[in-house]
């Protein structure tokens, strides 16, 4: 059963009672909220995700609640709790949904040490995965959302989960977080895509979440092998260019930007080295999203 199949009253009852057991990729999260804005957001973004038995085991325990302070009457806020403990300072009410996504990322990034976790977007086509590590502002999420709307399977816009046994990328397929101008770019690029209400004045500016394509969500148990590592760089007015990049420098940069590379010691080194061996590495500069997607399509059709 998917979240979208639950009757509205049933969803509310679960969110305020035993929690909704939401499956995203390899994880089940028990989610509580008493906020209508969160309930609407979850229904919009997570309708296609399976809901499991609430008597089962959950990997993560996340709640978004209105803090019980006087402030709730004149300046309502939302607070993220992990297993009943406040993780962050409360934020304005309309930032509840992005905050929930940050909390889910936090949970995976700090607890899922069964994986090597890189800070990168991952997408798959024809059984091959592209890993896109990049700092904020590089246009990584925009490119990721663009590719996901043009035939690539979305695995994650934020974290590459890599198995330690065989170096495969495991899908997470959660919503894509878009910031500021990329929201407008994406609504024009993919008129059929579904977006959450933008939350304004977050510490990252305006943030909206794009629903993950249904096919990507459905293939939640389907890992794949990495084939390319591409560092995107959005540069206004730039010509699209895909240039080979040093494997050694790529290795260093990926290790430094990983969530938990050092946790795995020698094993993490071996897994990452294996990935570098089997991947072609590129620097990618773009300004036009359509053109960028074309370049990736031809990359995917190469033997």
């Amino acid at each position: 059963m998917n979240l979208g199949d639950l009757a509205p009253q049933d969803l509310t009852r679960r969110l305020r009672g035993p929690g909704v057991m939401l499956r995203t990729g390899p994880f089940v999260s028990r989610i509580w909220t008493d906020m209508p804005i969160m309930e609407r957001g979850l229904s919009l973004l997570y309708a296609d995700y399976p809901v499991e038995d609430d008597r089962g085991f959950a990997d993560f325990h996340v709640s978004v609640m209105r803090p019980r302070s006087l402030r709730r009457w004149f300046q309502p806020q939302a607070q993220l709790l992990y297993d009943h403990q406040a993780l962050f300072e409360p934020l304005p009410l309309d930032q509840a949904l992005p905050m929930f996504e940050w909390g889910m990322n936090w949970a995976v990034g700090t607890m899922a040490n069964q994986f090597l976790i890189l800070h990168a977007a991952t997408l798959e086509r024809n059984g091959r995965v592209v890993i896109m590590p990049a700092p904020p502002g590089s246009g990584k999420s925009t490119l990721c959302a663009g590719l996901a709307c043009r035939g690539w399977r979305l695995m994650s816009d934020e974290m590459a989960l890599i198995t330690l046994d065989d170096g495969l990328v495991v899908p997470l397929a959660r919503p894509v977080s878009l910031k500021n101008k990329s929201i407008e770019v994406m609504t024009r690029f993919a008129p059929d895509a579904v977006f959450s209400e933008p939350a304004e004045e977050t510490h990252k500016g305006t943030v909206a979440l794009m629903r993950a394509p249904r096919d990507s969500v459905a293939r939640k148990r389907d890992p794949a092998r990495p084939a390319w590592i591409v560092f995107p760089n959005y540069l206004p007015g730039a010509e699209t260019s895909l240039a080979p990049r040093s494997k050694a420098a790529t290795f260093m940069e990926m290790g430094e930007n990983a969530f938990n590379y050092s946790v795995h010691g020698r094993r993490g080194f071996d897994v990452l080295a294996g990935i570098l061996d089997s991947c072609a590495c590129y620097d990618f500069r773009y300004s036009d999203l359509d053109h960028a997607v074309q370049v990736f399509s031809s990359l995917a059709s190469e033997a």
Partner: peptide
Amino acid sequence: ATADVEGYTT
């Protein structure tokens, strides 16, 4: 002493 959200987002 709750942490600030900014330290934990990517």
